[in-house]
Amino acid sequence: MRVFVAGGTGVLGQRLVPQLVDRGHQVTATTTGAAKLGLLARLGAEGVVMDGLDAASVSAAVAAARPDVIVHQMTAISVTHAGKADMKHMDRWFATTNRLRTEATDNLLAAAEATGVPHFVAQSYAGWNGIREGGWVKTEEDPLDLHEGTPAHPGMVAIRHLEDVVGKADGAVLRYGWLYGPGATDDLVEPVRKRQFPVVGGGRGHTSFVHLDDAASATVLAVEQQARGLFNIVDDEPAPANQWLPYLAECAGAKPPMRVPAWLARPLAGQVAVAVMTEGRGFSNAKAKRELGWTLRYPSWRQGFKAELA
């Protein structure tokens, strides 16, 4: 197929493009600047410079590529685009990503309609943001938590917009868990090594992880099978912070994380970080495995963390 990957030079795009190429697809992938066109060529794609927030730029790029499917992987949460990770001010940290999940999604869908692209696949998120009631593990039938009144709320609203409009277009929404792997693990490990990533409260809040290569392989399946609807793309083991965080520190050769009461962490790290650590809900991947036939290289973060940090 002719596959148009919007955001081909992101950490996930760089793992996705080669998998698509290896399976015989013709890939056009976008970047925001000409400096990375060489990278896309090395990955096997035809590179194009595109501004996802500029409707004319998106329209021209999609019309020229004439794809069979558009894969929306545009975010702006890297240090280059958004500065250091900052959950305390998540509204500022995710400001551009929120626009990419709203305005850029609308631009891509409009271009798809104008060009007659029959299928659309978009990136969403399912790490710790399941509804904070009931059990610790959520399915696609459970709503996401909007985290109203917190700096996470604008991001959750943007995710809801993306999922709504892609759903109405009969596309596939892939809710990736907390991504780790080449280009993504360092952001997770650096504060752990500096003992700046404590277990808050009892650390009972759950998180779902997924390795970049596993997220990419699920995306390839969604493309090839013209999947529709919501899919949680996470590993087999949603886990509480009091399990995964000490294990990550051990794999990284770091001292065990400190433990901080929630009342002390709230003014220091912010209410979102406290909610993730104490109330976060993970996700089930049963639907993706059943309907897409997805198998994981790293069924658990235990294997993946160890492999990445060996």
Results as ranks from 00 to 15, higher is better:
Arg160Leu: 06
Pro154Cys: 04
His147Ser: 08
Gly116Asn: 14
Val79Cys: 02
Asn129Leu: 11
Ile159Glu: 06
His89Asp: 15
Gly183Glu: 00
Tyr180Trp: 07
Pro191Asp: 03
Gly171Thr: 06
Thr150Ala: 03
Ala104Lys: 03
Leu109Lys: 11
Ile159Met: 03
Ala110Thr: 14
Asp91Ser: 08
Arg99Gln: 11
Arg92His: 07
Arg193Ile: 10
Arg101Met: 09
Gln73Tyr: 02
Asp187Gly: 09
Asp142Thr: 13
Leu146Gly: 07
Val117Glu: 02
Thr97Val: 06
Ala112His: 08
Ala184Phe: 00
His153Met: 12
Asp170Cys: 08
Leu109Cys: 08
Ala172Thr: 07
Ala158Gln: 03
Ala95Ile: 12
Ala104Thr: 06
Leu162Ile: 10
Ser124Gly: 04
Ala172Ser: 05
Val192Ile: 11
Lys88His: 06
Leu188Phe: 00
Gly171Tyr: 00
Lys168Met: 13
Glu113Gln: 12
Asp187Met: 14
Ala172Ile: 04
His147Ala: 08
Thr105Gly: 01
Asn98Pro: 02
His153Ile: 15
Gly116Thr: 15
Pro118His: 11
Gln123Tyr: 06
Gly130Asp: 09
Val192Pro: 04
Gly177Lys: 05
Val137Cys: 07
Pro118Asn: 15
Lys88Met: 10
His81Met: 13
Val166Asn: 12
Arg132Ser: 12
Glu140Pro: 03
His147Gln: 08
Arg193Cys: 03
Arg160Asp: 09
Glu141Thr: 08
Leu108His: 09
Gly134Ile: 14
Trp128Ser: 05
Ala111Gly: 10
Ala158Arg: 03
Asp145Val: 13
Pro151Gly: 01
Gly130Tyr: 06
Ala76Val: 13
Arg175Asp: 03
Gly130Val: 15
Val165Met: 05
His119Gln: 13
Thr96Arg: 12
Glu190Asp: 15
Phe120Thr: 13
Asp187Glu: 13
Val71Asp: 03
Gln123Val: 14
Val79Ser: 10
Thr150Met: 01
